[in-house]
Design a binder for these strands. Structure first.
Lengths: 160, 160
DNA sequence: AATGCCCTTTACGTCAACGTCAAGCATCTG
DNA sequence: CAGATGCTTGACGTTGACGTAAAGGGCATT
């Protein structure tokens, strides 16, 4: 019994993925152009599978950590033809280790930057509450707003 | 006794800072153009002080964590004219808090990416040591190389 | 004095990652 | 059957952060 029958084998339109992940059609087509996605077609229209969706998730996360689309594609290629072009893979391994080093450095940088921003913020807040306390509430409101958006991942569409 | 006489009050040429931090003259001039650096002049030539150098370090770190030059400038401005343009500063405060949230998210992402890359690496290494163990040593060597480059900060110029 | 090297400014080029039209099928809906 | 909507493919525009080439000044060595 083929697996296709065991799961609904759900598919997605471009719009569905876009709204789910806060992307744009243009972006998804762009990724496809760059060889990062290869959705099926129903006539003209793109049809995304679960696999495509998973890939998209990886793409977006890769982007968030500062990988270029090119680098992300290299990773995909690695996972794909796992039994082919081994020399290529050895090369990828090298690049991965490089990237890990870079990312670990970035982590330190980020920690530093966060600390600095915190300090800058409290300096500012002290200063403001001193001389212009009227300006503070709105900032605090905004702070609340941001916190709310963080765990929501895909915030409601209307939230501009 | 002015402090200028207590320390050598060393200065730097553009080239010195560039080689120290692996930047280009064009980049430093660009930062200056954008108001991020304001080195003194000796005739036509730029003369960078310790303060300028410290700023440059902050600029580069900011960049590494994904801050735009614009955002970095805002941080600098905050520390500077602390008693002026308070409304502006309230706005900056908002943006800083946003940025902190983003950075904290990035930290998580990076942790995830590091984990994934580690997994990908060990997958690859198992695979390679299985089928093409001959390809492994060079990768390991390279790994060593990278590790050496990390704490060296400014690696020797010839190391291509 | 000429060569070379490093500095300068000005100005145009580039690259990634899309945004933004434009123009055209296809399908549903009143 | 006329819109309206949603998809498609070009093709050009945009933004940030520089790269690169041109044209020249200043100083040191040959």
């Amino acid at each position: 019994m083929p697996t296709e029958l065991r799961r609904p084998e759900r598919t997605f339109t471009i719009r569905q993925l876009c709204t789910e992940f806060k992307a744009t059609p243009r972006a998804l087509r762009f990724y496809e152009d760059k060889g990062l996605l290869t959705p099926a077609r129903d006539g003209m229209n793109r049809v995304y599978s679960y696999k495509d969706r998973a890939r998209l998730i990886l793409i977006l996360r890769g982007k968030r950590v500062g990988l270029s689309l090119q680098e992300i594609r290299e990773i995909f290629e690695l996972y794909g033809e796992e039994d082919e072009v081994m020399a290529q893979n050895a090369h990828s391994l090298k690049k991965f280790k490089e990237k890990i080093v870079v990312l670990e450095q970035q982590r330190e940088d980020i920690d530093g930057a966060i600390a600095e921003l915190h300090e800058a913020c409290s300096r500012l807040e002290r200063h403001l509450s001193d001389k212009r306390p009227d300006l503070l509430p709105k900032a605090a409101d905004y702070d609340q707003m941001m916190r709310a958006r963080v765990d929501g991942h895909a915030e409601p569409v209307g939230a501009k």
